[in-house]
């Protein structure tokens, strides 16, 4: 029960931190700019007018879509971290064959799939804003797409096996090999020559770094909370099972 209380507190703090980061991203964080744009007629716009010359009116081009990175990148990093936790517990399971490690690996994978989905959604939004299309087979998006599929595969595998121990062993083996595969997917997608534009570079100013870090901490706390709440739920289920067993005997 203590873990559940901690989890709820973490969820609350994590939520607050993420919200703070959200506000900061649009207030204190320095606006990233694409450069300027020059038009013939003056525009009715809030964007700062930089220069008026014989070439026309030069406005600054703000980069609003960049704001999504205060969420997208922390979520992506958190997802990879949680995936790593799942792989770690999978290895521990194979070494020790203790059910609790299997449960931990499974719960971490559940949390990871939430984060990977969030990463995908924010990534798709960014692609739409930056490149004008909803989807681009860009290395990071592609890697996350593959990761989502592998995580779905992980749960498909689990659901298709009756025997508890075999299920745990297979899931652990697949979790590990999927975790190894994710970075390979990323590198190979990057290195294989293709006709698509290669990735953007995003730079950071200090005022941008602060909301970024706050968002990162917030996300991780929310992630832990999801994991811990599920864990205490599973523990209760297991206790019910044991009691049922005892009653039948």
């Amino acid at each position: 029960m203590r873990q559940l209380k901690v989890a709820l507190v973490m969820l609350l703090i994590g939520g607050v931190l993420t919200t703070v980061a959200f506000v900061m991203a649009f207030t204190t964080a320095e606006m990233q700019r694409f450069g300027t744009v020059t038009v013939d007629e003056p525009l009715d716009t809030a964007f700062p007018l930089m220069e008026v010359s014989e070439r026309g009116y030069t406005y600054e081009r703000p980069w609003f879509s960049q704001k999504i990175f205060y969420f997208h990148v922390p979520v992506a990093e958190a997802s990879f971290l949680v995936f790593g936790v799942a792989a770690f517990y999978s290895i521990r399971f194979l070494m020790r064959r203790r059910k609790e490690f299997d449960t931990k690996a499974r719960l971490a994978m559940e949390t990871a799939i939430v984060f990977v989905t969030l990463t995908m959604i924010t990534g798709i939004l960014w692609t739409r804003a930056a490149w004008g299309v909803w989807w681009e087979w860009e290395p990071r998006l592609t890697t996350y797409f593959i990761m989502t599929l592998m995580m779905i595969g992980y749960f498909v595998l689990r659901n298709s096996i009756e025997d508890e121990e075999r299920r745990a062993t297979y899931a652990a083996a697949f979790g590990i090999i999927a975790f190894i595969n994710a970075p390979i997917s990323f590198f190979i997608t990057r290195l294989i020559p293709s006709s698509h534009p290669v990735v953007f570079q995003s730079g950071f100013a200090t005022s941008n770094l602060i909301p970024f870090i706050i968002a990162q901490i917030g996300m991780l706390m929310v992630g832990y909370a999801i994991y811990a709440i599920r864990a205490s739920e599973v523990r209760l289920e297991e206790r019910v099972d044991v009691l049922k067993d005892a009653l039948e005997g």
């Binding site: 059910k99 508890e164 745990a168 297991e238 099972d241 067993d245």
Partner: peptide
């Protein structure tokens, strides 16, 4: 000798 084989509570 005291051979035990468990998985979780089972």
């Amino acid at each position: 000798r005291d051979l035990t084989r468990t998985f979780g509570a089972r």
